[in-house]
């Protein structure tokens, strides 16, 4: 499994490293709030905790949170 994950990462990096150049003045759409990788931090923290308390899987989401006794 670990090997699979590492291999998939290399494949993803390979595909993304060959992307076309986008000049800074062409990044207006990318700078919009709705285009950010991390969304609304408060909303993300809420949903992350809810799912963490109901499911076995966690992590890899991006928002940091404190531990809780919910799982």
């Amino acid at each position: 499994m670990k090997l699979l994950i590492i291999k998939l990462c290399f494949v993803a990096s390979f595909f993304t490293s060959g992307c076309s150049s986008v000049e800074p003045w062409e990044r207006g759409n990318l700078a919009k709030p709705e285009m950010q990788i991390s969304g609304d931090a408060v909303d993300d923290l809420l949903l992350e905790q809810v799912f963490y308390s109901k499911e076995a899987a966690s992590g890899g989401i991006g928002a940091a949170g404190g531990g809780c006794g919910c799982n």
């Binding site: 993803a12 993304t16 992307c19 986008v22 759409n29 285009m35 890899g60």
Partner: peptide
Amino acid sequence: AAGWTQIINQNSILFTGIS
């Protein structure tokens, strides 16, 4: 955790991460 975020073009970006 480690991640790589890449601008693909003027309208798209991709994040790849492991933890």
